[in-house]
Amino acid sequence: MISLPVVLVVAGLMFAIGLYGVLGQTNAIMVIMGVELMLGAAMLNVVGFVAYAHPDAASGAFLVLITMTLMAVEAAVGFALVVAAFRHSRTAEIDDLTELEG
């Protein structure tokens, strides 16, 4: 059956997959996708702790709400940065974006 360590292991593996994407991909959009997976793993951790350790803690559920907000904000600002970088350099490859010049 399911227990807290099982949930944490799944979340840890999900975090590692996201990290693999962030480190290994050259396109900014794919890096954002990796960050989304890592934040998803963090949320799964919190939901696991709420379910098994503190079932009456609504503040844990609230933390997940805040993390979802963070995911949306991160994606929105990330996409905007990609659009700005693409306008300037005609590419979204992070290996080519080596200058901060506007």
Binding site: I2, V50, Y52, A53, P55
Partner: peptide, 16 residues
């Protein structure tokens, strides 16, 4: 996650 002695064992239906 496996090595730590976490509290709780069964998922509670009393989630918020």
């Amino acid at each position: 996650a496996v090595a730590t002695d976490w509290p709780g064992a069964v998922v509670s239906p009393d989630a918020p």
